[in-house]
Amino acid sequence: MVDLDGDLTCKTWTVAEAAEAAGVTPDVIYQWKRRGKIKPVNERGWPRYRALDILKAEAATRERAHRAA
């Protein structure tokens, strides 16, 4: 279970955590990265993404698809 409490501008998530929080598969997170919707905050190692960026990308995707939360 991903923790959505606290300051989401500073919190970072792994691909798996980001996917769980957004309700998508890890492949979608990689697609968002390739399309430039999100970018990792670290330069080396396993990618980590800013929680707020993930939630914004998910909301924008949902809005474009005309889906409700």
Rank of each mutant, 00 (worst) to 15 (best):
A69L: 15
P26H: 04
E17N: 08
W46R: 11
M1T: 11
Q31H: 04
L55I: 13
L52A: 03
K37G: 10
I29K: 10
V28A: 11
G23W: 02
R35M: 09
Y49R: 00
E43V: 11
L4F: 11
T61M: 08
Y49K: 01
R44K: 07
A22E: 02
L8S: 03
V15A: 13
I38S: 08
R35E: 14
R44D: 05
T12C: 01
V24H: 12
W32D: 05
D3K: 14
R48P: 01
D3W: 07
G45K: 14
M1G: 15
D3C: 12
E58H: 07
A59I: 12
D7N: 12
L55Y: 04
V41G: 03
A69Y: 14
P40H: 15
T61C: 12
A21Q: 06
R67K: 14
G6H: 03
R62G: 00
K56N: 04
R34F: 11
V15W: 03
E43K: 10
V2D: 11
Y30W: 15
T25A: 11
G36S: 10
P40E: 07
L55R: 09
W13P: 00
A57Q: 02
R50Y: 01
R44F: 08
D7S: 12
V24Q: 15
L8A: 01
I38P: 12
L4R: 10
A16I: 04
T12G: 00
I54V: 10
G23F: 00
I38W: 12
K11W: 00
T14Q: 04
G45V: 03
T12S: 05
T25Q: 08
R35C: 06
Y30A: 02
V28C: 12
E43S: 03
D7K: 07
A19V: 00
A21G: 07
W32P: 05
T61I: 09
T25F: 14
T61V: 09
W13H: 01
N42S: 11
R48T: 07
I54W: 03
A21S: 10
